[in-house]
């Protein structure tokens, strides 16, 4: 039961149409998620995390996007699934929590009606039972006065409360898979912790698999079982949370971890990854996509067509450059080591 695979993303690419051409926003991604598991997808803005999430949810306009590969959800391939069949899965079996809790709720509908709506389409419950479920969900979310909140409009609630409502909508039908797209980004730190607790509690009860999309590595270390690091549409490193945090391999992962501010660290300077994620149109056709941001590493260290390499059981890294990677301020040390 605990090892049951719910979602298997195989070789999925998502391309957007810009000025008549298709550009890959997500390139050949492979992921698996099991029951009771939390998979974190990390990476900076614009690297395809949210696109991957909305691809799994099937929220893209088929006329403007091209999706290839296979998304196996409990035995159904979601790629190219017709809308009516998708609508049976969305909300019922896969719930999604969005980033901005204010704009994610319809400003003109009461909280209760917005939570009930998802039950209207996926359950045969009577109106009273739905109301009872709304109250149950809201108290499960840690809302003190659920009857009152149920009758309020989104603008009458605080950010944290709104996010709880968004989560309540996502889990109302007890989905097997929960996709949380930066659920805590718009909230302040104390509320972030509460929201994460709520998510973890839900998982204990529902045994859902959770895909947690975030750029907050602190959140990842606290909650995730597995981590996928994404850069420019590709997964560059994949492994258990312990593997990623204890023995990060890929230069991007190492740079990300190094750019976290450390209290009482040796240096006051924060490490900054120079440059930006290349835009979709400017994505290099081949070679390591991260190479341009670590220019001190010679081109010969990168693979021409970077592949995933298994460095230890279940720990995968893209490109061979991790073997010789060093940070600029470590150069002297490295040279000294080589001389010895």
């Amino acid at each position: 039961m605990a090892t049951e695979k719910i979602l298997d993303v195989r070789d999925v690419s998502t391309a957007f149409k810009i000025d008549g051409h298709f550009y890959d926003a997500v390139t050949h991604v492979n992921l698996q998620i099991k029951k009771d598991e939390i998979l974190a997808i990390v990476g900076e803005s614009g690297c395809g995390k949210s696109t991957l999430a909305t691809t799994i949810m099937g929220l893209h306009d088929p006329a403007e996007t091209k999706i290839s590969g296979e998304i196996d959800f409990e035995g159904t391939n979601l790629v190219g699934l017709p809308e009516d069949k998708y609508n049976k899965i969305r909300g019922a079996k896969i719930g999604m929590i969005f980033q901005d809790p204010l704009s994610s709720l319809n400003p003109l509908k009461r909280v209760e009606d917005q939570i009930k709506e998802v039950m209207d389409y996926h359950t045969d419950l009577s109106s009273e039972k739905k109301h009872a479920r709304v109250i149950e969900l809201l108290s499960q979310m840690g809302i003190v006065n659920p009857e009152r909140t149920a009758h309020q409009f989104p603008h009458e609630l605080s950010g944290g409360m709104r996010q709880r409502v968004v989560i309540a909508i996502a889990i109302a039908c007890k989905p097997d898979l929960l996709i949380a797209d930066e659920p805590t980004t718009a909230l302040d730190v104390t509320i972030q912790a509460q929201i994460l607790d709520v998510l973890l509690n839900i998982q204990k009860e529902n045994h859902a698999g959770i895909v947690l999309i975030t750029h907050d590595l602190g959140v990842v270390a606290q909650t995730a079982d597995k981590v996928a690091v994404m850069y420019a549409g590709q997964i560059v490193e994949y492994g258990s949370t312990k593997q990623i945090f204890k023995t990060p391999k890929h230069p991007y992962t190492r740079s990300l971890l190094r750019s976290i501010p450390q209290l009482g660290g040796e240096s006051d300077d924060l490490y900054v990854i120079s440059g930006n994620v290349p835009s979709l149109q400017k994505m290099p056709a081949s070679g390591d996509r991260f190479a341009s941001r670590i220019p001190w590493i010679p081109a010969s260290d990168h693979e021409k067509n970077p592949q995933m390499h298994e460095v230890s059981s279940g720990h995968l890294v893209r490109c061979t450059c991790y073997k010789s990677f060093y940070f600029p301020d470590q150069k002297k040390k490295k040279v000294a080591n080589e001389l010895n």
Partner: peptide
């Protein structure tokens, strides 16, 4: 975003 939320709920 609220229309996206509605789509994620499985509303036709």
């Amino acid at each position: 975003d609220y229309v996206r939320t509605a789509r994620a709920k499985g509303v036709p």
